[in-house]
């Protein structure tokens, strides 16, 4: 009797409970940001930023003697290529670990999935900082950071494609007297390699974006000169670097997208 009368009431007020909860959360969140009003310098700074972006520092694009935009962008590109390359291989054992159809024990794939989600949520900037402490600042730390961080996502995608393969060819190879490794090589890999490649390229596009800012913490690439330019409020230079980043990211997206379409 009691449940009959309370249930519809709960259904009626439930949306309102959600809305009030949301409003409360956001009041709390806005409050926490304690916005103290726009600084008096804000207007002049904004104007100089806009002015800087309108007049990029073209001299910085190429400088035969030292650090220039092209070299920084090339470094960034290389960091993301190598980082993706490293993780594309490192993640294969993780992928087989996390795939539910590889082992009969569910606990095995379960722990694999948990490990991967822990790797995935670890921000790459923090990974980069840790590697800088280990191998010193520079591109190598950036490569390792991307290589390790990307394992989380790539291995998850890989393991999902391993889970969806057709088991028939494996059965046929087993019936023909193949060993475990031969089954893997002749029946499993041919089915998953194209997808692995496609996912790696997709991750390369993401890594390209990350690589542009790794230098802010000292892990190589265009981020380092960007940080200097920002600290010196050299907006003309920030403008030209931003332009370079946009062009590089758009170009690599186009190329990688084109290759991905051809693979599948």
């Amino acid at each position: 009797m009691n449940t009959l009368t309370t249930k519809p009431l709960w259904y009626r007020i439930r949306p309102w409970v959600w809305i009030i909860l949301l409003i409360a959360i956001y009041l709390w969140a806005f409050n926490g940001l304690n916005f103290e009003g726009v600084q008096s310098t804000a207007k002049s700074v904004s104007l100089s930023i806009i002015d800087g972006f309108a007049h990029p520092d073209w001299d910085y694009v190429y400088d035969p003697e030292g650090e220039d935009l092209l070299r920084g962008l090339l470094d960034t590109l290389i960091i993301s290529i190598l980082g993706t390359f490293v993780s594309a291989f490192l993640c294969i054992p993780f992928a087989f670990w996390a795939a539910a159809n590889v082992s009969r024990l569910r606990a095995v794939s379960g722990t694999g999935k948990v490990v991967l989600s822990v790797i995935r949520v670890f921000p790459e900037m923090i990974v980069a900082i840790l590697f800088i402490k280990a191998v010193g600042p520079g591109s190598f730390a950036g490569v390792l950071a991307l290589g390790v961080h990307s394992i989380g996502m790539l291995a998850k995608l890989y393991s999902e494609s391993i889970e969806t393969i057709d088991p028939g060819p494996s059965e046929a190879l087993t019936a023909a007297g193949a060993s475990k490794l031969q089954v893997l090589w002749f029946a499993v890999l041919p089915q998953v390699i194209p997808q692995f490649l496609s996912y790696s390229l997709y991750r390369f596009e993401i890594n390209m974006r990350s690589a542009t800012t790794l230098g802010l913490v000292g892990a190589g690439g265009i981020g380092t000169p960007l940080l200097f330019a920002l600290q010196m409020r050299n907006w003309n230079r920030v403008g030209v670097i931003l332009l370079g980043i946009i062009i590089l990211v758009v170009l690599t997206d186009l190329i990688s997208g084109w290759i991905r379409k051809r693979i599948v």
Partner: peptide, 9 residues
């Protein structure tokens, strides 16, 4: 096999 079980690719 009934479903051939070839590696299609």
């Amino acid at each position: 096999f009934q479903s051939f079980n070839l590696v299609k690719r």
